[in-house]
Computed example of a mutant assay.
Amino acid sequence: MIRLFSTEGCHLCEQAYAMLVELGADVEVVDIAFDDELFSRYGVTIPVVNLNGEELNWPFTIETLNSWLEINGITNNS
C-alpha cells in the first residue's frame, strides 16, 4: 500500500494526496504528528510518498508521481 506521510494543516500534503487520488492510487495517510520517530524523520520534508520502503519527496508534479508509481509497479492508475 502507498503511504503518504503528512500532518493536519499541511497544504502541500493536501496537494500530494489530491494527485494520488487523481491517479487512482489506494493511499494510507500517516499523520506524523502522533509519532516522535516519524516526526523526527519527516517533520521538515513532508509530504513524502512511500511504497515498500521507496520514497518520493516533495516537490513533485503529477507526471513525476505517475512515473514513480509505474517504476515501483503501480500501473492501475489513470
Score class of each variant (00 low, 15 high):
58 W>M: 14
68 W>S: 07
51 L>K: 12
64 T>K: 13
3 R>L: 11
27 V>R: 06
53 G>E: 09
60 F>H: 06
75 T>F: 02
60 F>S: 08
76 N>P: 00
69 L>W: 05
44 V>D: 04
23 L>C: 07
4 L>G: 07
52 N>T: 04
44 V>I: 15
63 E>G: 09
72 N>D: 11
52 N>Q: 14
65 L>P: 09
61 T>I: 10
67 S>D: 14
29 V>S: 04
76 N>G: 13
27 V>W: 03
59 P>C: 09
3 R>V: 01
53 G>M: 04
43 G>E: 01
74 I>F: 15
61 T>L: 06
57 N>H: 15
29 V>A: 05
40 S>C: 03
18 A>I: 01
18 A>M: 03
20 L>F: 05
45 T>M: 13
24 G>N: 09
5 F>H: 14
30 V>M: 04
23 L>D: 02
34 F>V: 08
14 E>I: 06
13 C>A: 10
71 I>N: 08
8 E>G: 06
12 L>F: 13
25 A>V: 13
78 S>K: 10
45 T>S: 14
27 V>C: 11
10 C>M: 04
31 D>F: 06
1 M>C: 05
8 E>T: 09
43 G>R: 07
25 A>N: 03
28 E>P: 00
26 D>W: 00
68 W>F: 14
57 N>P: 00
5 F>G: 02
49 V>A: 11
26 D>G: 03
55 E>C: 08
15 Q>V: 14
66 N>T: 09
21 V>F: 02
24 G>Q: 05
34 F>N: 10
78 S>G: 14
30 V>E: 05
6 S>A: 15
30 V>I: 15
54 E>K: 15
38 L>N: 03
69 L>M: 15
54 E>F: 09
57 N>M: 08
49 V>T: 12
